[in-house]
Design a binder for these strands. Structure first.
Length: 767
RNA sequence: GCGCGCUUAGCUCAGUGGUAGAGCGGCUGCCUUACACGCAGUUGGUCGGAGGUUCAAAUCCUUCAGCGCGCACCA
C-alpha cells in the first residue's frame, strides 16, 4: 500500500482515474440491465462553446445525481451531446472568415461552400467542451454522444416537421415578426430581450387635409418611420378628435412627395389610449406589431421604409434613404424642424426589444415565415400545475403556467444557412412537404429551422426515436433535468410538449433549475467584463473536486450565486482535510474493509460518531429528495471536519498511541467503518479523491463508483455508556466532555512546548 | 401596469412558531508527532421599517421601503 502524500495533489490523480473509468466503461449504460433505470440528458452545450462556470455548476449537479444513483444500485444513463446552435455558430464562423479577409459577406462563398467551412470549424472546435467536461469528472456515457446535426437526429427533426405540417399545426404566413437586421433573420419572441431605453418622445404636427390651420399633434419615439405611416388613428370615444374620423391628414415626410401622395386617412381605433401622449397615433403597419393589427382591421396599405439590413429604403425619401435606422431618426427630426412641424421633444424611457444574439434593436418586419401552433398544450400545462412533473424550486411552475396560458405561435423559420433545412418543396404554385425531394424540377425552401426546433426533441431523439429502441424502453421518461430558468420557455416547455406529442409521455419527471452565477459585486459573469474565470485554471489550481465541492457548497436552491474564488479554495482545503484524515488512519496500520465496530470494545466517542453517521445518512436522504445540494455539501463538510476530524480523531489518538489500550481495535474498526461510508457519501461530489482514497486504503478492491448498491445497512449498537449516550444529544455538552476527556491534544502539546521554543520566540522582533 | 423573488453578524448565506447559526473575514496564541490547504481560543446581529395574530414571531398575516427578475402591442 503506497503511503499517502502529506498533501492531496489532484493533478497526480485526476487524469489517471478518469482514463481508468473510461477504459473500464464504468459509465456505460446497459438498457438490458435488471436494475431500475435512472436517466438524465445533458442540456447540450453549443458545439463550438467552451466551458464556463455555469456549465461547471450545471454539469456537476447532473454528475452528482448520476453518481448517487449508481451508488444506490440503479442503472444510470447520463446522455451527453452538443447543439449546433444555428445563429451563434454561423455568426462566429462568418466573423472569423471576415477577419481573415477571406470574405466580406457569406454570399461571397455561397451556401454550399460556406456550410463546408462551418463543418470544418465544427470538426476543429467541436470537441473542446466535451474534453473539458471530462476534466471536471462528468460521468457521461460517452459512447452515446449525440449532436443535433447527426444524420439520424436530422432525420427526426425533418420527420417531426412533416408530421406537424400534415397535422396543420405548421403553416406559412406573411406576418409581422421580430427581425434581426444584423443576423438578417427572423427571431422568435423568446429571442427578443426587452431593454429599457432612455430616448426622446417627439411631438410633431400633421395638417388635417383641406384645413390650412387645423393640426393634430402626434407623439412618437420613432420619427424615422413617418414616411411609412399610412394612417392616423384616434380613439372613437375621444371627444377631441372623433369628429375628424373619416377625414385625411397630410403626412409630413418625405416632403418632396406631392401632397396627394402623402394624404392618409384619419381612422378610429379602440387601441388608441386617450391618456397617452396626445391621444393621436401614427400608424406604420409595416414596422410596428400593434400598427400592423390596426392596419389589418382597417385594410390599410403597408409601406416598407426600412430594409432587411436596417437601412432606410428609397421610399423613405431622398434625405433618409440609405441611412441607418438610428441616424435616420436624427435626420427625420431635422426635417421636421425645418418644416416647422416639430412641437417639442421630451426625455422618455421606454422598453425596446433587442436581439438576444446580436444585441441590436430588433426591427418588427413583415415577412413570409413558417409558424408552429404548439401541440399537446393542455396535457403539458396540467402535468406541471397538477404537480406530476415537478419543478425545483417550485415557484417556476407559475412562470411556466403563465407562459403556457398565453401561448403565441412559434416562428420557426430562420434565414440562415447553418441548421436543418425546411423539408418543403416548390414547383411554380405547387407546394409539397416531405423529406426527400419530389423531383429535379422542385426547389427546396431556402430557410432553416430555429435551433430549438431540433433541441425540443432531445430527450427521445437521442435515444433512437422513432424506432422503439431498448434505450427508450429503459430510460424514457428521463428522471431529472438540470438546467437554467432562462431557458424555461426556449427549451423546457417545448420539450414537454414534444414529449407528449411524440412519446405520449412526459420527457422528465423532475426539473431542477440552477441559479445564475454572479461575481462578488453581483454582476453576471461575462467575457466582456473579464469577470469570468476559466474553470480549467481553477481545476489546475484547486483540483476538480475542490472546484466542484467549493462551488456546490455555495449554490443555494433557487437563488443566484455570489462567486468568490475563496470558496473554491475552501473546497480544496476540505479535500486536503479528508486526505489527511485518511492518511492518519493509514499510519496506524492496514484498514479492514469489512470492519464491524459492533464486534469490538469501544469508547463512547466511537458510539457518538456512529450515531452521528446514521443521522447524517438520514439527513442526506431527505435532502436529496428535495434537491438541496448545498445543504448536502454543508452536512458532509460538517461531519468530516467537526465530527470525524475535530472530535473523533483527536480522542482516538489516545487509543492509537497506546498499543495496550482495550478499545484500540474498536476505535480502528469505527474509523474504517465510518471512512468507508463517508467516502461513498462524498463520492458524488468529489469523485476523484474518494476513489483514490478508497483504493489506496484498501476499503475496496474495485472502483468506488459501484461500491454501495445499498448493501451496507447501518450498524446498530448497544450503548457502551448509557449515561454518555443520553447526554450526547447536546453537542455542546459533548464538546465539553471531549475537552475534559483529553481532546485538543495538539493544542495542549503546543502550549506545553512553548517553553522549549524560547530561542524561536527570542529571535522574533521585539514588541 | 401585472406577477415572482430577495432584504438575518463586516462578507456570502442556512434557519417556516419555542432561549439567534455556519463558512469566510477580524482579533489572540500556536510549525503541534494527519493536515499552516492546519490547530486552540475569541470578536461580532434590537433577523429592512411599521402594525397585527399568538403564552411565544427571523418564522404566520397586513402594509411600506429598497433591490433583483419575469411577463406586457401605451405609441
Amino acid at each position: 500500500m503506497p503511503e499517502l502524500a502529506p498533501a492531496y495533489e489532484p493533478s497526480t490523480v485526476e487524469d489517471r482515474l478518469y482514463r481508468q473509468w473510461t477504459d473500464r466503461q464504468d459509465y456505460r449504460a446497459n438498457p438490458q440491465s435488471a436494475k431500475p433505470g435512472y436517466s438524465i440528458v445533458i442540456p447540450p452545450p453549443n458545439v463550438t462553446g467552451i466551458l464556463t462556470l455555469g456549465h461547471v455548476l450545471n454539469n456537476t449537479l447532473q454528475d452528482i445525481l448520476a453518481r448517487r444513483a449508481r451508488l444506490l444500485g440503479q442503472e444510470v444513463l447520463w446522455l451527453p451531446g452538443t447543439d449546433h446552435a444555428g445563429i451563434a455558430t454561423q455568426t462566429v464562423v462568418e466573423r472569423t472568415l471576415k477577419k481573415e479577409g477571406k470574405i466580406k459577406h457569406r454570399d461571397d462563398l455561397g451556401r454550399e461552400e460556406f456550410l463546408k467551412q462551418v463543418w470544418q470549424w465544427k470538426e476543429k472546435h467541436g470537441g473542446i467542451i466535451i474534453q473539458q467536461l471530462k476534466k471536471l469528472g462528468a460521468s457521461c456515457d460517452w459512447s452515446r454522444e449525440r449532436f443535433t446535426m447527426d444524420p439520424a437526429y436530422s432525420a427526426c427533426v425533418q420527420q417531426v416537421f412533416v408530421d406537424l405540417f400534415h397535422k396543420k399545426l405548421i403553416y406559412r404566413g406573411r406576418r409581422m415578426v421580430n427581425w434581426c437586421p444584423v443576423s438578417r433573420t427572423a427571431l422568435s419572441d423568446e429571442e427578443v430581450i426587452m431593454k429599457e431605453q432612455k430616448g426622446l418622445l417627439y411631438h410633431f404636427r400633421v395638417q388635417v387635409s383641406g384645413q390650412k390651420d387645423r393640426f393634430l399633434v402626434i407623439a412618437t419615439t420613432r420619427p424615422e418611420t413617418i414616411p411609412g405611416d399610412t394612417a392616423i388613428a384616434v380613439n372613437p370615444k375621444d371627444p377631441r378628435y372623433a369628429s375628424l374620423i373619416g377625414q385625411c391628414a397630410i403626412r409630413p415626410l418625405p416632403p418632396e412627395l406631392p401632397e396627394a401622395q402623402r394624404r392618409i386617412p384619419i381612422i378610429g381605433d379602440e387601441h388608441v389610449d386617450l391618456e397617452f401622449g396626445t391621444g393621436v397615433l401614427k400608424v406604420t403597419p409595416a414596422h410596428d406589431p400593434a400598427d400592423f393589427l390596426i392596419g389589418q382591421r382597417h385594410q390599410l396599405p403597408s409601406l416598407e421604409v426600412i430594409d432587411e439590413t436596417g437601412l432606410m429604403k428609397p421610399e423613405a425619401g431622398k434625405s433618409l434613404a440609405g441611412l441607418d435606422r438610428a441616424k435616420a431618426r436624427t435626420a427625420a427630426v431635422e426635417q421636421l424642424k425645418e418644416l416647422g412641424l416639430l412641437e417639442k421633444e421630451e426625455p422618455y424611457v421606454n422598453q425596446v426589444g433587442y436581439s438576444e444574439r446580436a444585441d441590436v434593436p430588433v426591427e418588427p418586419r413583415l415577412s413570409e415565415q413558417w409558424f408552429l401552433r404548439y401541440p399537446s398544450t393542455e396535457t403539458s400545462r396540467t402535468i406541471v400545475s397538477g404537480g406530476k412533473l415537478r419543478f425545483f424550486p417550485e415557484r417556476w411552475t407559475k412562470v411556466y403556467d403563465h407562459w403556457m396560458e398565453n401561448l403565441q405561435d412559434w416562428c420557426i423559420s430562420r434565414q440562415l444557412w447553418w441548421g436543418h433545412r425546411i423539408p418543403v418543396w416548390y414547383r411554380g404554385d405547387e407546394i409539397c412537404c416531405q423529406i426527400e425531394s419530389p423531383g429535379a424540377d422542385w426547389r427546396q425552401d431556402s430557410d432553416v429551422l430555429d435551433t430549438w426546433f431540433s433541441s425540443w426533441l432531445w430527450p427521445f431523439a437521442t435515444m433512437g426515436w422513432p424506432e422503439k429502441t431498448p434505450e427508450l424502453k429503459k430510460f424514457y421518461p428521463t428522471t431529472d433535468l438540470v438546467t437554467g430558468p432562462d431557458i424555461i420557455f426556449f427549451w423546457v416547455a417545448r420539450m414537454i410538449m414534444a414529449g407528449f406529442e411524440y412519446m405520449g409521455e412526459l420527457p422528465f419527471r423532475n426539473v431542477y433549475f440552477t441559479g445564475l452565477i454572479r461575481d462578488a459585486k453581483g454582476r453576471k459573469l461575462s467575457k466582456s467584463l473579464g469577470n469570468s474565470p476559466d474553470p480549467l485554471d481553477l481545476i489546475a489550481k484547486y483540483g476538480a473536486d475542490g472546484l466542484r465541492f467549493g462551488l456546490l457548497r455555495i449554490a443555494p436552491q433557487g437563488a443566484d450565486i455570489r462567486y468568490d474564488e475563496k470558496q473554491i479554495e475552501e473546497g480544496r482545503n476540505f479535500a486536503n482535510k479528508l486526505w489527511n484524515a485518511c492518511r492518519f488512519r493509514q499510519q496506524q496500520g492496514p484498514s479492514d474493509p469489512k470492519a464491524n465496530p459492533a464486534q469490538h470494545p469501544r469508547t463512547p466517542f466511537c458510539d457518538f460518531l456512529l450515531e452521528k453517521l446514521d443521522t447524517l445518512e438520514r439527513e442526506l436522504d431527505r435532502l436529496y429528495t428535495q434537491y438541496e445540494f448545498s445543504q448536502i455539501a454543508q452536512a458532509l463538510y460538517g461531519f468530516v471536519w467537526d465530527e470525524f476530524c475535530a472530535r473523533f480523531i483527536e480522542t482516538a489518538k489516545a487509543d492509537f498511541l497506546n498499543p495496550a489500550s482495550p478499545t484500540r481495535t474498536g476505535t480502528l474498526a469505527t474509523s474504517d467503518f465510518v471512512l468507508s461510508r463517508v467516502l461513498r457519501l462524498l463520492h458524488p461530489y468529489m469523485p476523484f479523491i474518494t476513489e483514490e482514497l478508497w483504493i489506496t486504503l484498501g476499503l475496496g478492491t474495485e472502483t468506488i463508483i459501484l461500491a454501495d448498491a445499498g448493501q451496507t445497512p447501518a450498524v446498530r449498537l448497544r450503548r457502551t455508556d448509557p449515561k454518555f449516550a443520553e447526554g450526547s444529544h447536546d453537542s455542546r455538552s459533548l464538546g465539553r466532555a471531549l475537552s475534559a476527556a483529553g481532546g485538543s491534544a495538539r493544542s495542549r502539546q503546543g502550549k506545553n512546548s512553548t517553553g522549549k521554543r524560547d530561542h524561536r520566540l527570542r529571535s522574533r522582533p521585539g514588541p
